Amino acid sequence: MIDSQFERKASDLLQELLLDLLLVTDGRTTDLLEILLNEKVTVQVIRQQQIAEDTNLIGEFSGGPYYIRESVLIGEKSGFVVSHNIALVYSKHVPPALFKNIAHRKQGIGKAISSLGVRSFRKVVDSGFVNEEEAVDLFRQPVNIRFTNLHNKVPYKRYFMYFGRKPGIQLLEYYHPSLIEHRLQQEIKKK
């Protein structure tokens, strides 16, 4: 009994540490997700559309047209949905080749940046954990997160991607809270 209690506590601690790392990194999140999942991920675009200029998008965010993109990242082999992502693209502040790649919906934004060799930096502005029913998009509207079997609060991170002096993309990413548990179960099944 003590061993199983210790193992559960160790597993919970490991999961907490890895999710915390995911929330604070300002590097390529997709790379970290692939490492944690131990497989490549593919993007499935749920919706992508041009939106009207919003009066809330002033100052450094002004200069539409604006595009909203909602997608999920899914493990290629397992089909496990690891993240639900909402991006607001400020098209005037994104390199043209990258914008074209995003518009074709074939890759995740991070993969597109990497494959094109575009220089960027990220600034994390918010992160934490929310209950599923508290999940909202970038306009504070409720969002239906595409995760199954949710039993825990959902980790999220909101950040800006810069390709110059002004942000080009604002991202809000929700991560499946059972990502680490899923990976551990996959490893146990192999043995």
Rank of each mutant, 00 (worst) to 15 (best):
L32P: 04
L33H: 03
E34W: 00
E34I: 02
I35L: 13
I35A: 09
E39I: 11
E39Q: 13
K40D: 15
K40Y: 09
V43L: 10
V43C: 08
V45D: 07
Q49N: 15
I51V: 15
A52W: 08
A52Q: 14
D54W: 00
T55G: 00
T55R: 14
I58M: 06
E60S: 10
F61I: 08
F61A: 01
S62H: 08
G63H: 03
G64N: 02
P65F: 03
P65S: 04
I68E: 15
R69Y: 10
V72N: 11
L73Q: 07
E76H: 08
K77G: 08
S78N: 06
G79N: 03
F80K: 05
F80P: 10
V81C: 11
V82F: 01
H84E: 13
I86Y: 07
V89N: 07
V94L: 02
P95H: 00
A97P: 04
A97W: 01
A97E: 12
N101S: 15
N101V: 10
I102Y: 04
I102N: 04
A103V: 04
H104V: 10
H104F: 07
K106E: 13
K106N: 12
Q107K: 14
Q107A: 07
G108K: 05
G108L: 02
I109S: 00
I109G: 00
G110I: 04
A112K: 05
A112M: 05
S114W: 12
S114A: 08
S114I: 12
L116P: 05
G117M: 04
G117L: 01
V118Q: 09
R119L: 02
S120R: 01
F121Q: 10
R122C: 07
R122P: 01
V124C: 06
V125T: 15
V125C: 06
D126Y: 01
D126V: 00
S127E: 03
F129W: 14
V130W: 07
E132V: 09
E134G: 05
E134M: 07
A135C: 10
V136E: 13
